[in-house]
Design a protein around this nucleic acid. Structure first.
Lengths: 209, 209, 209, 209
DNA sequence: CATGAATGAGTGTTCATTCAT
DNA sequence: CATGAATGAACACTCATTCAT
């Protein structure tokens, strides 16, 4: 009670929010359940956020702020397209491994049907869309990959696979689906995934060796 | 799973269920609204199904039973890998265009968190997993594509892109995301999508010309 | 539970609604408290009414449908203005005595500040406004009362007193106020009230003897 | 009832309280909104008052202390009953015009159901009850009006009309009701109201000319 | 056996009230 | 002593589920 929620509690509020939204979806999540788990009162959520939607959005932002940044930073660092892909794929798999909840929340929002969807898509995907497209375009200009690609769509396809990898490590349906293709062992052999993914993408882009 | 009541009514029950679940999601859908639209009583849903979730699952099965079959049939028909890809991509885009509801429902289940995810993934994805993997394996055996591919994972990546295309034409978040890459015009230029997708996939698989 | 609320229960729902709204006002009344007292579930109120406001309005209508009708009928029955006033006053006091709850609800709505106010005023007051005005006008035409009156305003003043009498028998503040003027005994001497009220009004209207 | 804090702030607290209670009613008013507008903290309200109701009562007292005093002073000033009535009616209409907030608050309390109703009625109505009764009694003694009146009840009826006029200029329901009798124009013709009200009352009291 | 009215637990949200700061 | 963040009970309202008819 009483004075200023400790930073830790505020953090808990968001963490348990993320967890609940990731598990039950926006509609299924209950604010009082979140408050209970975080050891705060329902009212306090409304001190910090306008309503359930605002709170959800903040959870999403808090959760995903690094997600794509990590990848876009990696994309910017490497010199050649080839290295970029290698680093991206490596980071992607690591990230998928280490951010279960964030990735499940991500999967939750992409299936949402509210007006938030448009806003969130812009916020979350805009930068990576630009970065990946530039990556492809630059490689084309520099003769580092096939010349006949449509950079926007190739970047899009490429990002599609990335997105699906994240889900495939973290969301039940996707996990099971990956098992159908590769068996349980795939979850214990990240190197295999990494190698093949690099092959697939460099092949698609016609990356020069 | 069920017995009497005019077949037509049972059909309506499922069709309107599909429509409502696709539009509003599992949580947002209301059984009485569905019953109302189908011209039956709520009670009858409970005669035929255990609870909302069971009914939802049956709607999903009913809706998606052809979804991937269409693609697997196409995959089986063509002789060469190259033709298969061409036909698959063409069919995929057509299908994405013409089965809005099914695709939105598909997106609803993949993000779902029920214990049924495992069962559903098997039911829905098993055949295409096999077919695509075989397609790649056969092409490798016949020397029609690169030799160094892992057929399971390459089929998986390839199916991932297909899945994302379906969502990208039908679900809000994904649609907005595609716009970020290509602008609004992409939704009026299916040929562009088709061409580039074929290029990307044939490139990735190293399909021989 | 289960099939069709008995007519008695529906009646209870309205009666306890009236009682709660009369006691606590629109804002202060609680639908679950009403449901509890009436021995029904909250949900059932929503089966019968759109929302709290609709339910409130129905309670008001149910409660007040006779209120002014009683008076307007009396006004129509008598031949002379003098007799009308006598009968009206008599009926008014009887009614004030016998319809505690209705009168308290009436007092509740007149102090309301919602958009309902305008609608309710029209529904409840329109007929008596016309009847009383006509009563005065007719008496003027027939030379039964003073000629210099403004029939609309005289009818209005006259109805004002009627309204206040209703409140003065049923609402705490008004009751106490009446006591300040006349002492407790006034509540045990309806004849005194009746006689004086007739005198006051006939005097005001200049009724010919 | 309270002690420190700059007098100005205490004043603000009450003034904004009055305004909020008049606009939204007891239930609708929010203490933090009032505190916010008055530039104080909610806590300070609780330092000075037991709870919301006590604060409300103090607002009422502060607001209404002059309300009836104004009229009772006017009643005392004039010599003849006739002049008194003229002056009272004139002042009443002016007051109704110029004290919207106080009058709406007045209407809020009279319909209130708290245990304080009794106390408030005494505080607010006692003096005018005496003054009006004396006015009538004195006029009777002096042969300035009819002899057969019951001074208490005649004063009561007369004050009833006054109260209703106040509400009819300021409260939605009552305003609409007045419109039903006289049309919108009545709100732009105070002279008409004044003239007729004087006629009605002098008639009722049988004031000698 | 279909019906759909009734149930009641559960939701988001508000706000009077408390008391650590 | 004023502050205002935190509390939590209370509200209107929804809807999956039940079972008398």
């Amino acid at each position: 009670m009483y004075k200023k929620l400790s930073d830790e509690k505020i953090n808990d509020m968001l963490r348990f929010g993320i967890s609940e939204f990731a598990d039950k979806g926006f509609g299924g999540a209950s604010l009082s359940s979140i408050a209970g788990k975080a050891g705060i009162s329902v009212g306090v959520i409304y001190k910090y956020f306008e309503d359930k939607e605002s709170f959800f959005l903040e959870c999403v932002r808090y959760s995903l702020k690094d997600l794509n940044n990590v990848l876009t930073e990696v994309a910017a660092e490497s010199d050649s397209l080839k290295d970029s892909i290698k680093d991206l794929v490596h980071t992607l798999i690591l990230y998928s491994r280490e951010h279960e909840e964030e990735n499940r929340l991500y999967s939750e929002i992409v299936s949402g049907r509210s007006e938030m969807s448009v806003m969130l898509a812009r916020e979350i995907e805009e930068i990576s869309a630009m970065v990946y497209t530039d990556l492809v375009r630059k490689a084309m200009d520099e003769g580092m990959c096939r010349k006949d690609a449509d950079p926007s769509l190739f970047a899009f396809f490429f990002d599609n696979i990335f997105m699906m990898i994240q889900f495939s490590y973290n969301c039940e349906y996707y996990r099971e689906r990956l098992k159908l293709y590769c068996g349980d062992s795939i979850f214990e052999d990240d190197e295999r995934m990494e190698t093949e993914l690099i092959r697939f993408i460099t092949g698609a882009l016609g990356v020069m060796v």
